[in-house]
Simulated scan of single mutants.
Amino acid sequence: MFDACIDYATLARFAAGIYPFVLQADLYRYLIGAGGTFLVINTLLAGWLAKRKIRVEKPTWRQMGREILASLRTVLIFSLIGLAIAVSVRLGLLTVYEDPAARGWPYFVINVLVLIVAHDAWFYWTHRIMHRPRLFRWFHRLHHRSYNPSPWTSYAFDASEALVNAIYLPLALMVMPTSILAAFLFTGHMMLRNAIGHCGYEIFPARADGRPLFDWLTTVTHHDLHHARARANFGLYFTFWDRVMGTEDPSYYGEFARAVGRTSTGRAEIAPAGRPSE
């Protein structure tokens, strides 16, 4: 009955017409987010931030080239899921609307916050599951080839991991009608926090005692520790799940304090701790 109501030719023309714009948006998001972070933090401000460099060594150009190539595949996968969202909206299966004030500005603010908080939970649990030994090589090994990450690492996923990350948004849209602007802010925030988390310079502010000023947020050191040791610090935006589940690296505060120069031991140099696993 449902199939009989669909004009497949019109739907195909719609998909073909909108897909270049979806692909372009995902590509620009990565290039501006990762590339902009690399340009500003890792290049223009590198000298000024030198004392906040977490590792002495820098990612190699060969590594970054590999990351960009892998990220282009992720962009393609994300864009195909984006196309699926657009087609689903066209069919009335998902609700995405243009006017951000259509449901009131309080709903708009709550909408963006819920998308971010729920995504942090999605990321923590899927990320932690992907670290199980039987799943790691199929889902997450490529990302951890970047032991010393760069902003370009932010989308350097295996295809399977990219798909797991991509399906969050359509699942969220199934339960929460969302404006185009809210979705744009959510995906922009996701990209920027991801790129910053891999930049290798601790840019988050510290208190006088060397602890993070905003201790509920994951800092660059927090995620850098995950790339170095892989058995802790699974969160993306917030420290909540790692602390509730007891998966935060016990050396985190000490490493952060060294990264921001609040200890007498100098620059932080995070040591590896074995093969990535849970």
Rank of each mutant, 00 (worst) to 15 (best):
F204C: 05
L44R: 08
M130S: 02
L94T: 02
R128G: 04
R13D: 11
M64R: 07
R258N: 09
A16I: 08
R258K: 14
K53V: 14
L49E: 10
M1G: 14
L169Q: 00
T265L: 15
D209A: 13
A182E: 02
R128M: 12
L11R: 00
P20Q: 08
L115F: 13
F238D: 13
V109T: 11
L171W: 11
R193H: 05
L93D: 04
A232F: 11
A15G: 06
V112Q: 03
V75T: 03
I110A: 13
D158K: 00
A195Q: 01
K58A: 09
P212E: 09
E278L: 07
Y168G: 02
T219F: 11
D224M: 08
L115G: 07
H143W: 04
R52G: 15
T219I: 09
T218K: 12
G82M: 01
H227M: 00
Y237T: 11
G200I: 11
F2I: 07
V56I: 12
R207K: 15
P151L: 11
I18T: 07
R55V: 10
V56Y: 13
R243M: 12
A208L: 15
F108V: 03
N148H: 09
H198V: 04
L39P: 06
D26V: 11
A25T: 10
M176F: 15
H223S: 00
H227I: 00
V56T: 14
F136N: 02
F123P: 01
D242I: 09
R137Y: 08
S79A: 09
Y237F: 15
I85P: 02
L69A: 14
H223P: 02
A230K: 02
S277W: 06
G200V: 08
M130R: 04
R13K: 11
I116F: 10
R145A: 13
L39F: 14
A50V: 11
R128W: 10
F238S: 12
